[in-house]
């Protein structure tokens, strides 16, 4: 599609109001291995914007997405996948969380979003697929659960091979969790939270919450990264605050222990 056509489609999309029947597609409920924290980040972001969305869980969500990336939203006749493009899409419709930021703050916010994607998302994948015990006991069975044998085995091993290949390419192959820099990223976030997140909620909050909450609440053979998060009181209280504000139905107590 040409740039002119792209712009035209964007204008048309922006002109239409947010519908009541917007749908967010994710893999099976409780199956956090495939989408990691990104699905929760999108839900958090849309709730922060006050946009209604129905979450639909499908085993084949990955294959339903035109880009092959999850989660994705279906709004009217538009399909948009991943947090970044979804943020742009909602912005075109007049819903933005970062309008109050100046240029430097916006630059820093976007840089931190890349840091979280680069480090925390990769750390989640690393723990799930490169730690042999976690991969064998949790990740492979969970990933292959919607499929019958032998497809289940083929797909889960294929996924593990893909992730490990990527880890080797970025230099994370054969490293320990200590060496891959996830802990360093958490420390960086603790330095940044008081500065960026005092005045108003932004898409960075949604992204950070999605990943941290996922790590804190997903069952893994090694709780090393979750323990790291718990050691930073401001990260923990940040997660609780977002959970209570946007996800609690007031009766339940926080899922973060």
């Amino acid at each position: 599609m040409s740039l002119a056509a792209d712009a035209f489609v964007s204008q048309l999309a922006a002109a239409e109001p947010w519908p009541e029947n917007a749908t967010l597609y994710q893999p099976l409920k409780g199956e956090l291995v495939r989408s990691s924290g990104t699905g929760l980040s999108v839900v958090a972001y849309l709730r922060m914007c006050g946009l209604p969305v129905e979450v639909v869980y499908r085993a084949n969500a990955e294959y339903m997405s035109p880009s092959g990336k999850i989660p994705f939203i279906h709004v009217g006749n538009q399909v948009v996948s991943e947090l970044g493009p979804i943020v742009q899409f909602t912005k075109a419709k007049g819903h933005s969380l970062s309008d109050g930021l100046d240029d430097v703050q916006r630059a820093e916010m976007k840089a931190y979003m890349e840091l979280v994607n680069n480090m925390l998302l990769t750390a989640e994948l690393y723990i799930q697929w490169c730690d042999d015990a976690t991969a064998a006991e949790i990740s492979r069975p969970r990933y292959s659960s919607p499929y019958s044998w032998p497809l289940s085995n083929i797909l889960s091993y294929q996924k593990q091979w893909e992730v490990r290949r990527k880890m080797n390419a970025i230099g994370w192959g054969g490293k320990t969790l200590e060496q891959v820099g996830a802990a360093q990223t958490l420390f960086m976030l603790t330095q940044r939270l008081p500065v960026l997140m005092l005045l108003f909620t932004t898409e960075l909050d949604a992204l950070v919450f999605g990943h941290l909450f996922t790590i804190l609440t997903t069952r893994l053979t090694s709780a090393e990264l979750a323990e790291r998060i718990k050691s930073y009181s401001n990260l923990l209280s940040f997660c609780r605050r977002i959970e209570q504000t946007y996800f609690d139905d007031k009766k339940k107590k926080s899922r973060i222990s």
């Binding site: 820093e108 840089a111 840091l115 994607n117 420390f187 330095q191």
Partner: peptide, 12 residues
């Protein structure tokens, strides 16, 4: 804080 910013922009 500057160290954190540095790492973030390198990731960007």
């Amino acid at each position: 804080k500057e160290g954190a910013d540095s790492l973030a922009f390198i990731s960007l």
